[in-house]
Nucleic acid binder design. Sequence first.
DNA 1: CGATCATTCAATGGAATTATTGAATATAAC
DNA 2: GTTATATTCAATAATTCCATTGAATGATCG
Lengths: 219, 219
Amino acid sequence: MSSPSPKLALFEQFALVAKTLGHPQRLELIEQLGQGPRSVDLLAEKLGSPIANVSQHLQTMRRAGLVAAERQGKYVVYRLADASVLMAIQAIQRVAENNLAEVNKIVRGYFEQRDSLEPITREELSGRLRDGMVTVLDVRPADEFALGHVPGAVNVPLAELDARLSTLDPSRDIVAYCRGAYCVMSFEAVSRLRLQGFRARRLEDGMPEWAAAGNAVAS
Amino acid sequence: MSSPSPKLALFEQFALVAKTLGHPQRLELIEQLGQGPRSVDLLAEKLGSPIANVSQHLQTMRRAGLVAAERQGKYVVYRLADASVLMAIQAIQRVAENNLAEVNKIVRGYFEQRDSLEPITREELSGRLRDGMVTVLDVRPADEFALGHVPGAVNVPLAELDARLSTLDPSRDIVAYCRGAYCVMSFEAVSRLRLQGFRARRLEDGMPEWAAAGNAVAS
DNA sequence: CGATCATTCAATGGAATTATTGAATATAAC
DNA sequence: GTTATATTCAATAATTCCATTGAATGATCG
């Protein structure tokens, strides 16, 4: 455990960060925490994993400087250490997207035609929001929506999308978003909406990036 | 190995990338490859590790989409898959720098006074290079210098720095760089130069970033 | 204070990762 | 063809990582 050269010592620290990011369940935790601070309890429920398991992952992430914890009464509330964590996630996703054929295969499974993939940028959405020309659809579960969402967005959880199709105006463009760039719920939502004849597109990323970019968040 | 939900499948891919970055030796390999394509042979020598070991790490990285390999006659030459890999490394370094006290402790071990830490940006260096107001010092080993360097830079490998102090003009500002933002050789060089009364600063990053930013590279 | 709830700790076994070693393959040189 | 060199493959043991379980801790509520 002793680190002879400072160079190796530094690389060991960097490797610790990366290695800690290298577990699907921990990435899922970061996806959740990207939307806002959450208790161990809630996180475990979201992931459908045993609490002890989630707690251990969170502690591992705390040791790696990815998250911070604060006791609030009965609960321990975890949050992302800072915005750099989200940026690291994005950078890793970009590497995977560029260089792992498997990723594109999965993504394309949601879209038969390649050109419908083009997402809308945050800037574009901001502009069209001001013009009121667009319906913004938040397809996350209701509890996540309640903890913060894009102002003006309508919450239609993916599970209820089919049932609530009739409440959507087919003459308006729809922009769907969820937890992040690779949150599959928005992919799924856009895919289904298009099948029904709606003009639907995905936001390029999701809630955490919207908030991190300094945009307003309603709750 | 079967991936039920596409969401999990995606996260597994992302985790694969991150996990693969989570090893000091592999980070060292990326540091080397950031300077340009290299053979397994040369990489093993640089790291001082057995060839079989390095070869396996390289193959692991290839499976994760971090590097690509190409056979050139007798040699197999590896290179970074694309620029996104370097950006991911930088993002991870930033997380560590922001949130791991250990990293700052190590970095500060090279600089007693905190304010001397301020590095010079690539843009600033470009400008001062045009004015000819600055001596650019490449402190990497001679062979790495030979494979590509900042135009106009003088190669003074760290090991020879003390012996060649007299060849440096004390009236000129010195900017030292090496392999990257956390390549400790430039830290060490600046530290020593300052002790000898030189006005020395580090470049904010190193060779790979210089090249990735579209700057010219002499060889 | 006792009961309850949220979280962490500690111990277990199983799985994955890693370094090492020596053999196997592929290419170039002779 | 034979030899030399560069790289990869295969097998092993040591280590680390991970999920699970049940007990321990810390805080609130009655």
